[in-house]
């Protein structure tokens, strides 16, 4: 079996409140906050992008794993906001953390679940004995069309996971199961600045169907049930969907609290469920079991059953997610529009 040898998350410093965005578009701030379950979202500075966020998360993962970067045999970066259309983010990250040149690297894209897809690829490679350690990163600086509902939710953040053998792991990945279909709930065409989505169609036939199917599929495969797990992390496109899917699956609200960060940092896309898991690993104790289900529009879900080991004490070597969430500075809409390059002609 394989597991998580090290993990790290990074959330940029700047925040914009939902009510500030609502005011610009003439919306009722309370209705937005209640409807989407988002108070504020994290936004990257003008000199940050998916690659720089990934590097900061990767460095923390390496600190916790206590391994030399050159020991990584594979590096996958999952994102829907790769800085280049053609030129792998993974090469930039691998070079910046000192993992080059003897490794394989590639970029992944699967809307909000490219990070967990990378974890599965690394699990396969470590399990097959092809590599000793592999790193999978979910990172995004996602954009929402100005005035669209997505503008309240699209946040920025990253999380990195080093996958290795179970004996060295701070958490063992017991099993994984995926559910994938062609469901056009959200997309972005080439050269388009902003994604399009199906509004309510993103709910029942997309998010809920896939998250439930992957989660139930894994529990059926492993013969486990909700009561066997101490924590649940669901993909969190807003504050509402993960709470609703937890209710549908019979997961009590206290089991999703630590893994639900979207109300305070927004939907960090490929970083979302990985950062949620990082926040759970920051507080979990040896023996705890964690159930994670990501979701990527398009659409698919990856479910993981994770068991924390006594090596979780290695987390002390890295900065916890809570520090990044607490360290914040609010900006106004115009500054946010500048940082995220929403002005024409910039």
């Amino acid at each position: 079996m394989v597991g998580i040898v090290g993990y790290g998350a990074y959330v940029p410093k700047y925040r914009i409140k939902s009510e500030v965005i609502a005011k610009v578009w003439g919306e009722d701030p309370d209705r937005i906050k209640k409807g989407l379950g988002i108070n504020e979202k994290a936004i990257a500075s003008s000199d940050e992008d998916a690659a720089t966020l990934a590097v900061e998360a990767a460095k923390i993962a390496l600190q916790r794993a206590g391994i030399a970067p050159k020991k990584l045999g594979a590096l996958y970066v999952g994102s829907e906001s790769h800085p280049y259309a053609v030129k792998p983010t993974a090469t930039i990250v691998a070079e910046a953390i000192g993992a080059t040149p003897d490794l394989t690297a590639a970029d992944l894209e699967f809307a909000c679940k490219a990070g967990t897809a990378g974890i599965q690829i690394c699990m396969g490679m470590v399990g097959a004995g092809m590599i000793e350690y592999g790193m999978a990163i979910g990172t995004d600086t996602s954009q929402g069309r100005p005035g669209d509902a997505l503008e309240y939710s699209t946040g920025c953040g990253a999380a990195a996971y080093i996958i290795g053998k179970d004996a060295e792991s701070l958490a063992i990945i017991e099993d994984t199961h995926s559910f994938t279909t062609d469901t056009p709930d959200f997309w972005r065409r080439n050269k388009a600045d902003y994604p399009s989505h199906g509004g309510r169609f993103t709910g029942p036939p997309a998010y809920f169907k896939h998250v439930k199917a992957a989660a139930l599929g894994l529990m059926r495969k492993m013969n486990t049930k909700v009561e066997d797990y101490d924590y649940f992390v669901f993909h969190q496109p807003n504050g509402k969907f993960p709470r609703a899917v937890a209710k549908m699956l019979g997961v009590p609200p206290e089991k999703i609290a630590d893994g639900l960060l979207t109300p305070n940092i927004g939907n960090t896309y490929s970083g979302a469920s990985p950062i949620g898991l990082a926040n759970v690993l920051d507080v979990a104790k040896a023996g705890d079991r964690i159930f994670v289900t990501s979701f990527g529009s398009g659409a698919g879900s990856d479910a993981f059953s994770i068991k924390v080991t006594d090596k979780i004490k290695n987390r002390e070597k890295g900065k916890p997610v809570s520090e990044f969430i607490a360290h914040k500075e609010y900006v106004d809409y115009a500054t946010y529009a500048k940082y995220r390059r929403k002005f024409k002609g910039m």
């Binding site: 500075s45 000199d47 940050e48 992008d49 690659a51 720089t52 590097v55 900061e56 800085p83 280049y84 930039i92 910046a96």
Partner: peptide, 20 residues
Amino acid sequence: MVFRKIQSNDPEGLIHYGFK
């Protein structure tokens, strides 16, 4: 040290990264 973008003004050019 942190890793950031230094310069990326040319939309068809390279993105320059480095230490800050």
